[in-house]
Design a protein around this nucleic acid. Structure first.
Length: 676
RNA sequence: GAUAAUGUAGCUCAAUCGGGUAGAGCAACUGACUCAUAAUCAGUGGGUUGUCGGUUCGAUUCCGACCAUAAUCACCA
C-alpha cells in the first residue's frame, strides 16, 4: 500500500482506564478494553511501534476496608485481584504489553516527583477543612461511608451525598442521625489540614488544549460547561489511615487515589521500559516528545482525564495526552445492566459460556467515535455474529475450499493478481484504515462486509458448481476459487484486530505467515492451501440463555445476607457425626508454668477424666472455671504438647484475647452426656 | 432542579462540515440455486424521521415548547 509506506512508523502509547481492584471485571469494562485492544492491534498490524499498558487501580478507602473485612493485608488483597483481572483480559484476547499496579515503586516515585514539581512551582495550597470523622475507627469518612436520615424527606438509611428516595442532595454533615457505615458509631466533625491542587492556575492552558483536537467534540462541549461553572481547587490529600502513598514532607497525609491512578499509566510504562531495551521512558513522556499518548476512558471519568491530568502533567514538565477517547456506558437490551435481570455479566461468566471473539466482533461492529452509550442487544448479537461472521465472511472460504481441495489438490491458480474483485478489496484499505484510526469501527465493518457481499455474489454469478462438471470450463473454477480466497485473505487482515484467534486459524488454512497490513497487496497464487476447517461456530442462543441464568444466580447469591466470617464448606451429616461432643465438668483448672496462653484443665465425663490444655488464659482465671460445666470435643486424637498430652478441646467463641467465651450447657445437663 | 445529549422501518444503525423527494444490514414475504456451518443470490413489502408549533419555495437536518430515555452536575472532582 503506497500511502502508508510513505508514513513514518509512529510511536504510540495506549492505555485503558485502570480497573479498580475492589471488584471483578464485567462486560462493561470489556467494552473499553476490547476497543482499546482493537485499536492497538490495528496500529501494530500497520507496523507502528504501539505499546498498550494498563494496571490495577489499588488505593483508597474502599480497598482498605475491604481487605480489613476479609482479614488480609491490602497488599495481598490487591495482588489476588490483579491476577483475576489479568486472567480475564487475557482470556478475552486483550493483549497488554504490560499490566502493572498503582501500588508499585515506579508509581510511588513518579507520584512524588510530580507532586514535588507541582509544589515547587506553587501549584499546591493547604487549608483546613472540617469533615465527618468516625471516633471509633479513628478515620475520616468519605461521603459514601456515612448513612443517616435524609434531611428533606426523612428516609432512613441514605448515603451522605444524596437521597435515593427524594433525590435531594446535601452534605453529609446535614444528615440526621448520621452513622458511620464502617463502625456504626456516630460521626463527629473534625478539622484537618488538606492539600489542594490549584487547578485554576491552568485554566487558560486547558481552555486551549481542550479545543485543540485532543478530545471529542461532545466532550469539548461538556468541558465548556465546566469552565463556565468555574474550576475549583482539587483536594488531593487524605488522612491516615489510608491505603496509598504518603505525601512527601507531610506525615500522615496520603495522596487521594485519583492523584496516583493516572500516574499509574506512566508507572506501568516505566516498568515495561525497565524490562525492554527498545523503549525509553523519556522518549514518550518528555514535554517535547514526538510520540503519541492515547487514553481510552469511560465518560464518567472525563473530568479527571481532561482537566486534572493534563494540568498535572503540564505543571510538572511532562507532555500532555495526544488524545483522550471517551466512550459511553454499556447497556443490555436497552437498559442499564441489572443484577436481578442477569444482565450484569461478569467477564468470567461470559467466558464460561461463549467465545470471546463473538463479543469482540459485536463491539467492533457497532462502535462509533462518539460518546453515546453502547447497547448490547442480545437478539441482535446472535443475528449479527451468525450472519456477518459465519454466513458471509467465513462462508466465502467455506464454499470454494472444497473445489480447491478436491479438484485441484489444494493448489491455487496463477495470474489472478489483476482480477477486479481483488483490486476492489485491496482498494478499500485506506478507507478502512482511516475508520480504524478514527475509531469509527462500525463504519469499517460496513465497508468490510460489503466486500464480503460482493464476493458471495461473485461466486453465485460464476456458478463454479456447474462449471466443475464440464471439462472445458472446469479450470475456471480454480480461478474463481483463488480469487475468492484472496478476497477472504484481505478480509481477514481487515478483521484481524477484532478477531485475532480466528485470523490465526485462517492463516493456518491459507498456509501463510501471520498476516500484516502490508500483505493486503500480496496476492496468493500458484501455491497450496491446507484443508479447510470451520473457524467459528454459530452462536447457540441456549448458551446465551445459560449465561444470563448464571448472572441471575450470581446476583441472588450476592444479595443474600453475607457473614463477615463466611461459612466453611458444607459437610455431610456423617462428617458431623464423627465428632463426639460431651458435656464435662471442669474439676480442676490451673496455670501452666512457662505457657503464655494455656490453662491446664481436668475434665470429668462422669467418671472418666480427661486432661486438656486450653488457650483461654487471656480470658479466664483458673478459679473462675472450677466446678463449671462446659462442652468438649472428646474423641479428638490426643496431641502431645510441650507441657503434656492434651486429650481434647473445649469449645469457646470469640475473636480472642479477653473476648473469649466458653460454652455452658443449660441447667440440667450432666457430665458425660453426648451433645448432638 | 440545572446542563448538554439522545429519540429515524419489527431489531441494530446510516444519512457528506451550516436544509432539497429518507438508506443499509438483520428479521418477514416471493422466487432462484445447491459449491458452502439451510448458507448464498434476485426481488417485494415496511418509516407523515418522539409530539406540537415556527423560519423557509422546501426540514430528519435550523429555532421554540412539550413528552420519553439514559447521563452529568448541584463543592467527589
Amino acid at each position: 500500500m503506497s500511502s502508508e509506506q510513505n508514513n513514518q512508523p509512529r510511536q504510540i502509547l495506549v492505555t485503558s482506564a485502570l480497573p479498580y481492584a475492589n471488584g471483578s471485571i464485567h462486560i462493561g469494562h470489556m467494552l473499553e478494553h476490547i476497543q482499546t485492544d482493537i485499536w492497538t492491534r490495528f496500529q501494530k498490524l500497520r507496523g507502528h511501534q504501539c505499546i498498550s499498558v494498563c494496571a490495577d487501580d489499588t488505593h483508597g478507602t474502599p480497598i482498605m476496608l475491604r481487605a480489613q473485612k476479609e482479614g488480609v493485608t491490602p497488599e495481598d488483597f490487591i495482588a489476588a485481584t490483579r491476577e483475576e483481572h489479568l486472567k480475564d483480559f487475557e482470556d478475552f484476547l486483550v493483549e497488554y504489553d504490560n499490566y502493572h499496579s498503582t501500588h508499585s515503586e515506579e508509581n510511588r516515585e513518579l507520584s512524588e516527583l510530580i507532586y514535588n514539581r507541582l509544589n515547587d512551582a506553587g501549584h499546591i495550597a493547604k487549608r483546613t477543612i472540617s469533615q465527618l470523622f468516625d471516633p471509633e475507627k479513628e478515620m475520616f469518612l468519605p461521603d459514601r461511608f456515612v448513612k443517616g436520615e435524609c434531611p428533606k424527606c426523612g428516609s432512613e438509611d441514605q448515603y451522605g451525598d444524596n437521597c435515593d428516595n427524594c433525590g435531594a442532595t446535601y452534605s453529609p454533615t446535614e444528615l440526621k442521625n448520621p452513622k458511620s457505615a464502617v463502625s456504626g458509631a456516630t460521626p463527629i466533625n473534625k478539622d484537618s489540614e488538606h492539600y489542594f491542587f490549584k487547578l485554576t492556575n491552568f485554566e487558560s492552558m486547558l481552555k486551549t488544549w481542550t479545543r485543540d483536537g485532543h478530545v471529542q467534540e461532545q466532550i469539548a462541549n461538556k468541558l465548556d460547561e465546566w469552565f463556565e461553572a468555574g474550576l475549583q481547587e482539587w483536594d488531593i490529600s487524605r488522612d491516615a489511615p489510608y491505603f496509598g502513598f504518603e505525601i512527601p514532607g507531610a506525615p500522615g497525609k496520603y495522596f487521594y487515589v485519583w492523584v496516583d491512578a493516572p500516574i499509574g499509566y506512566m508507572a506501568s510504562f516505566k516498568n515495561l521500559c525497565d524490562k525492554r531495551d527498545d523503549l525509553n521512558f523519556d522518549d514518550y513522556w518528555n514535554a517535547d516528545s514526538a510520540a503519541e499518548v492515547h487514553h481510552f476512558i469511560g465518560k464518567d471519568i472525563v473530568y479527571f482525564h481532561t482537566l486534572f491530568w493534563p494540568a498535572m502533567l503540564h505543571g510538572s514538565g511532562f507532555r500532555k495526552p495526544t488524545k483522550v477517547h471517551a466512550h459511553g456506558f454499556l447497556t443490555v437490551n436497552g437498559t442499564k445492566m441489572s443484577k436481578s435481570k442477569g444482565t450484569f455479566v461478569k467477564a468470567r461468566t461470559y467466558l464460561n459460556h461463549l467465545d470471546p471473539e463473538y463479543l469482540r466482533y459485536y463491539f467492533m461492529a457497532k462502535l462509533t467515535s462518539k460518546v453515546d452509550d453502547f447497547d448490547l442487544n442480545l437478539e441482535d448479537f446472535v443475528a449479527r455474529i451468525n450472519s456477518d461472521l459465519v454466513n458471509k465472511y467465513i462462508n466465502i472460504a467455506s464454499r470454494v475450499a472444497s473445489f480447491i481441495g478436491k479438484k485441484f489438490d489444494g493448489r491455487l491458480a496463477d495470474d489472478v493478481a489483476d482480477h477486479p474483485l481483488i483490486k476492489e478489496a485491496q482498494g478499500a484499505a485506506e478507507t478502512i484504515a482511516e475508520f480504524y484510526e478514527n475509531k469509527q469501527y462500525g463504519r469499517a465493518i460496513r465497508e468490510i462486509m460489503s466486500i464480503a457481499d460482493k464476493a458471495n455474489k461473485y461466486v453465485d454469478s460464476e456458478e463454479p458448481w456447474v462449471k466443475i462438471k464440464d471439462e472445458t470450463t472446469a479450470p475456471q473454477v480454480q480461478v474463481v476459487s483463488t480469487v475468492c480466497l484472496n478476497v477472504f485473505k484481505i478480509l481477514t487482515i481487515y478483521l484481524k484486530p477484532a478477531i485475532p484467534a480466528m485470523a490465526e486459524k485462517v492463516e493456518a488454512f491459507l498456509n501463510v505467515e501471520p498476516l500484516q497490513w502490508s500483505d493486503i497487496s500480496e496476492v496468493l497464487q500458484g501455491r497450496t492451501v491446507n484443508k479447510f476447517k470451520p473457524m467459528v461456530q454459530r452462536i447457540d442462543p441456549k448458551k446465551l440463555e445459560a449465561m444470563i441464568e448464571e448472572g441471575k444466580e450470581e446476583a441472588a447469591a450476592a444479595s443474600a445476607p453475607q457473614l463477615a466470617d463466611p461459612l466453611k464448606e458444607e459437610i455431610e451429616f456423617s462428617d458431623f457425626d464423627k465428632i463426639d461432643l460431651r458435656v464435662v465438668k471442669i474439676v480442676k483448672a490451673e496455670h501452666v508454668e512457662g505457657a503464655e496462653k494455656l490453662l491446664k484443665l481436668q475434665l470429668d465425663l462422669d467418671g472418666v477424666t480427661k486432661q486438656v490444655f486450653a488457650g483461654i488464659k487471656s480470658a479466664y482465671a483458673p478459679e473462675d472455671l472450677q466446678g463449671k460445666l462446659t462442652v468438649m470435643v472428646a474423641n479428638l486424637k490426643p496431641r502431645k504438647m510441650r507441657f503434656g498430652v492434651s486429650e481434647g478441646m473445649v469449645l469457646a467463641a470469640g475473636p480472642g484475647g479477653k473476648d473469649l467465651w466458653i460454652l455452658n450447657p443449660d441447667e440440667g445437663a450432666q457430665p458425660g452426656m453426648r451433645v448432638k
